[in-house]
């Protein structure tokens, strides 16, 4: 298990999901803080998969109205693979950290 948060932060799948999370948080009429909390509280790989699933459902409804890009299936697969390679807390922190940046 690796703990390198800096390395994981730059992975493509994390960037894609992080950007989607940031968009959903920063858009005034969406402000999806609930998904962020669910991701933060996930205690197992299954919990995280469930939280991501819920997030994608909410994201889809907002994205369809606003022409936002969506994370692709390959990104989802890659994200789940990271939970085997990295500590779960590191994966969660990498996703959440993207919400602290300016770039969308």
């Amino acid at each position: 298990m690796s703990n390198n948060l800096g390395e994981l932060y730059e992975e493509e799948a994390i960037r894609e999901f992080g950007a989607a999370l940031r968009r959903a948080l920063r858009t005034e009429s969406v402000k999806d803080f609930a998904s962020l909390t669910e991701i933060d509280r996930a205690n197992s790989k299954n919990d995280l998969a469930e939280a991501i699933k819920t997030f994608l459902r909410r994201y889809e409804s907002a994205a369809s109205k606003r022409h936002w890009t969506r994370p692709e299936v390959k990104h989802l697969e890659q994200l789940m693979k990271f939970t085997d390679k990295y500590d779960l807390d590191v994966v969660k922190a990498a996703l959440i950290s993207h919400a602290l940046t300016k770039k969308s």
């Binding site: 962020l36 590191v90 959440i96 950290s97």
Partner: peptide, 13 residues
Amino acid sequence: LENWNMYAMEHIR
């Protein structure tokens, strides 16, 4: 990591 997470969540909130 724990301190980073606590801070990051507070920052976003």
